[in-house]
Amino acid sequence: MPLPRRAGPSGPRPTALTAAALLCALAAGTLTGCGGGNEQGGSATRTPSAPETGSFSAGTLPSALASSASAAVSSARASVSAAASSLEARASEFEASVSADTARSAATAEKALKGVPGRGNAVGEVGMTGVPRDRTGGVLAVLVTITNKTDRKASYAVQVDFVDADGKVAETRYVGAQDLEPGKKAQPIAFSRQSADKKLTARLAKAQRY
């Protein structure tokens, strides 16, 4: 009985070739380097695609995020600038309103105090109270209360020194009251023109009744 005929080792394998070709065709969009599917048995290799880098640059944020951050910084700077301008405007308004009330008597008070020995004869008739900075636009100011404790009309000249933590005088201001009736009060305001960040204290230097 004749034995069945066997294919030699180099004989074709139609079924294997067809399957390999089909696999390469299906994977064409995602696989490269498919094997030839020959008798030696080639293999398919996946090649990963590179990430899109068109909208990036080395060491920087994506453009959209960078723009957003830049806008936030600009907005914050604008807010700080507006706040500073508002504070400066309020301080200027306060100074202008005070100047209108005190400029007329300041020169007279300064002149009256020249040559006055010691602290003057009316220190006991003058008191000072700090004015809250939220009402002055950040300006250091004190309300000077002058009370005529005599029985006759009198005028007053007051010197206010603004001193630092070491007691050194940084600025001197003058206020006064003219023809104050007995028992009556006057309340001029003395304010410093020094920078608001300086730590100064108002001190009653002299007070003269004349």
Rank of each mutant, 00 (worst) to 15 (best):
P4E: 12
P4I: 07
P4L: 09
R5V: 01
R6Q: 08
G8V: 01
P9F: 02
G11P: 03
T18V: 15
T18Q: 15
A19D: 04
L22Y: 09
L23F: 10
C24A: 15
A28W: 02
G29L: 03
G29C: 05
T32N: 13
T32G: 15
G33Y: 12
G35S: 09
G36H: 04
G37S: 05
R46F: 07
P48S: 07
P48R: 09
A50Q: 10
A50P: 12
S55G: 08
F56W: 11
F56D: 13
S57N: 13
L61T: 06
A66V: 00
S68F: 03
A69P: 00
V73I: 13
S74G: 11
A76Q: 13
A76F: 09
A78T: 08
A82W: 00
S86L: 08
L87P: 09
A89L: 08
A89I: 00
R90Y: 04
A91N: 05
F94Y: 14
S97E: 15
V98G: 12
A100P: 04
T102V: 12
A103M: 06
S105T: 13
A106D: 10
A109P: 02
A109E: 04
K111H: 06
L113T: 05
G120C: 01
N121D: 15
A122S: 12
A122V: 01
V123R: 14
G124L: 14
G127S: 15
M128A: 00
G130L: 11
D134Q: 07
L140C: 00
A141P: 06
T147P: 06
A154V: 08
A154P: 03
Y156N: 01
Y156W: 03
Y156S: 07
V158R: 06
V160F: 11
D161Q: 09
D161A: 14
F162N: 14
A165S: 12
G167P: 06
V169Y: 03
A170V: 00
A170S: 08
Y174R: 02
Y174K: 05
Y174G: 03
V175Q: 11
G176Q: 03
L180Y: 08
P182S: 02
K184W: 02
Q194P: 00
L200C: 08
R203V: 05
R203L: 01
L204C: 11
A207R: 02
Q208H: 14
Y210L: 07
